[in-house]
């Protein structure tokens, strides 16, 4: 039986301003199991990025329940949310979001330095070099991000997301700023990670890449309108 990694029940998100309320998500129910590769698609403004933010505890839902590995994380404090993010979730962003002032090594090591239980420098070094090897960037450990190409930066971002051995990888349009060749390379890497057991949830506009997932969610106006189990389809 597959292990449930996360579960959302009746999740809504409303952005309120002086003039109006914007319902970004309306009653999302979602289950993601260990080893899943879920892609989330939909037109602009449908709530994909909002859903991903809530999944990654970058924001809090307006209502509903959200559990990660059976722990209710719907109403965590900012410190607790940061802790869960650090321990259980890895992020890969569209624009890489590496810190220019830090070297590649230090960028990847950053999540480990935020651990509550102090990680020794020796262990940090070991894990970082392992992740660099996975993404085939060991030879660039001391470079700065602005010395790398877009594809190389995204690979570093993947390494950073993996270094903490997260339960879930959240990927926000990973190929949006890359050419097709680099985009393919990055997607190949993600697929490989999934095949090795990493649970992925990816937002993408590109139908080719969306079809690489085992499950595809279609969002429209803040609701999941369609779920395709591509593994079953392919199977």
């Amino acid at each position: 039986m597959q292990q449930l990694t996360l579960k959302m029940t009746g999740i809504t998100k409303v952005y309120s301003t002086e003039d109006m309320d914007t319902h970004a998500l309306r009653g999302i129910d979602l289950e993601i199991y260990k080893g899943d590769f879920v892609s989330i698609c939909g037109p602009s403004g449908c709530g994909k990025s909002t859903l991903l933010s809530l999944l990654g505890l970058l924001d809090m839902p307006t209502s509903g329940q959200y559990c990660i590995e059976e722990k209710d994380v719907s109403n965590l404090s900012l410190s607790e949310a940061a802790f869960i993010r650090n321990e259980k979730i890895g992020f890969i962003f569209q624009s890489f979001n590496l810190i220019d002032e830090l070297s590649v090594f230090d960028n990847i090591a950053l999540p480990l330095r935020y651990r509550r239980e102090k990680v020794s420098e020796k262990d940090i070094h070991k894990k970082v070099m392992e992740c660099l090897q996975i993404v085939d960037m060991s030879h660039r450990a001391q470079h700065k991000p602005n010395q790398l190409s877009g594809g190389q930066q995204q690979r570093i971002a993947i390494a950073r997301a993996l270094v903490g051995s997260p339960a879930l990888l959240l990927v926000d349009e990973p190929t949006g700023n890359l050419d097709s060749r680099n985009g393919d390379a990055v997607m190949e890497m993600l697929q490989q990670l999934n095949m090795n057991g990493t649970t992925l949830c990816m937002v993408t506009h590109d139908p080719r890449y969306a079809d690489m997932a085992t499950r595809k969610l279609h969002l429209l106006d803040g609701k999941i309108i369609d779920t395709q189990n591509l593994a079953e389809v392919v199977g």
Binding site: L78, S79, A82, F83, N97, L110, Y114, R115, R160
Partner: peptide
């Protein structure tokens, strides 16, 4: 600001 947002996204708590 954005750099701090990134740090928070990858797990830096407010006090950190």
């Amino acid at each position: 600001k954005f750099e701090l947002g990134i740090r928070m996204a990858i797990g830096a708590s407010p006090d950190k």
